[in-house]
Design a protein around this nucleic acid. Sequence first.
DNA 1: ATTGTGATGTGCACTCATGAACAGAATTGC
DNA 2: GCAATTCTGTTCATGAGTGCACATCACAAT
Lengths: 301, 301
Amino acid sequence: MSAHHNMSIDAWDEIRTAYHVARLGTVSGAAEVLGVHHATVIRHIDSLEKRLGTKLFQRHARGYTATEAGQDLMQVAQATDDQFTQLASRLKGRGDSVTGELVVTSIESLSPLLSPVLAEFQMANPGVTVRFVTGDRVFRLEYGEAHVAIRAGTAPNEPDNVVQRYSTIQIALYASRKYLGGRALPIPEEELPQEKFMGYENMDSRAPFYRWMEDNVPRQNIVMRGSDGRSVKHAIRAGIGLGFMASWEASQYEDLVQVVEPKPEWAAPLWLVTHVDLHRTAKVQAILAHLKSAADSWTLA
Amino acid sequence: MSAHHNMSIDAWDEIRTAYHVARLGTVSGAAEVLGVHHATVIRHIDSLEKRLGTKLFQRHARGYTATEAGQDLMQVAQATDDQFTQLASRLKGRGDSVTGELVVTSIESLSPLLSPVLAEFQMANPGVTVRFVTGDRVFRLEYGEAHVAIRAGTAPNEPDNVVQRYSTIQIALYASRKYLGGRALPIPEEELPQEKFMGYENMDSRAPFYRWMEDNVPRQNIVMRGSDGRSVKHAIRAGIGLGFMASWEASQYEDLVQVVEPKPEWAAPLWLVTHVDLHRTAKVQAILAHLKSAADSWTLA
DNA sequence: ATTGTGATGTGCACTCATGAACAGAATTGC
DNA sequence: GCAATTCTGTTCATGAGTGCACATCACAAT
């Protein structure tokens, strides 16, 4: 039983037709405006009247004149037409201009790098409201959780996602001067496993430097683990031992020094990933362009 | 050029489809509610997005989630659906119940006869507003000028008008006692042409008693003419001579007497005429029934 | 792992709404 | 009064939109 016990009109096009007939007073005029044959207009009216059980028009050779019911319908349809027209211009404009919300997501560790860039973008486009969502859980673009995501690591290959190569985060091993105590640098690679290390809580991540640490550093030498980048950073600065950090972040601190020449495989590629449905919109294109131009001024490599 | 330079949406059904998709979150669910195949829903969405130039939904295997644009559309469509539903119930009710305006038209001379009947009807149906329009010009039902007309004379045969036999107005020759001066009644028919007569201004009317007067009474004996029934009535009562009057009206006055037995051909048939489009509506049926029952209590013959 | 379920998406046959042509009627013009 | 115009209304052929079937995919549960 698919019958609507609560009567709701399931032929909006017919109302639209009736509206123009009531407005113009003739079937032919309405047919011309609607771009259909006048026979179609007559059929729409007949169908609608049959459905409503009420005569909407009185037919005569000079045209159709709306009954009270028809005039009532005309007023409602008039309002509807106005609202739809406004909606259309809103939506049209929304497609070509950068307004409304713009949701960007990334892993939390990129936050200090991206925040200023996004702030810049917002100031350049006052009409847009930027929401920067970070978190270790992957925000799913296909559910509309974000317009663009900055992902790190291996290239995502989820379907319906258009992914672009973005930039490269140079990762290196750092330690504080306090820990090193004036030792000669770089530390020879064969001696590294004997150092103390600051590790990560969830090493299940497939980041290459994680795997390097798992493979080359004895478990007992990983003396502490942190679950987020900030705690790792503070532990290293406190002198607990060696640890992986992004070069751009470590270089901001005078007390941190790079202990070995970074291996190329440690580098974490960044990916700009957007949903295919939203990729072509002006808003997404604008933020992508802005992110790329910002990356050009970075000195990450 | 039939191009709409002002963008207005010319596919309301597609908006309705998109509305239900946005509301339910899945194409399949919307298809079931709408009573169409889910492929149709997909095609509607695609068409609408193409038309608006904006993505309304993000597609994924679990369903469709509305973008900002889609949510905007959903709100507008929600309001539209509510308004249409209200309209439908209003119109549905209007078809089966007697409410709103009811326009009745007749020739002016029937006004005193019909007015109390219409007043009765209004009091029996408080929801209806009765407009009683009299005038010598014929109000055209097909232009929506009236719901029901009471016509006198020969049966109207206009197309699209359903006409019913109503009642018969008995017309007879009357004169005031002052004019007669106590003569014996009835006046022999062969002496009638020698009497003085009160006539009508527009004798072009095809009423049978008009023609009788034209045919049987010498022109110079029609000593006065009036353009409306009231002036004729007053002239007769003033004693100017003989004149045709409706029996129901003349019988109200003590000073008026019937001078000859009325000829059957003088009687004026009344017709109830309605437009075919409105004839079946409850409102029209109600007033017709009321008029007929009122006629049963009349003593016109 | 594997099966099951409930989604979206697409090619193909078909039906139904549409469009073209014509007829009828009323009003307008000369 | 007669022709011209402008409507409505109906019939019939056609094409666009629809429904069906099947493929595909994602998630959940056993």
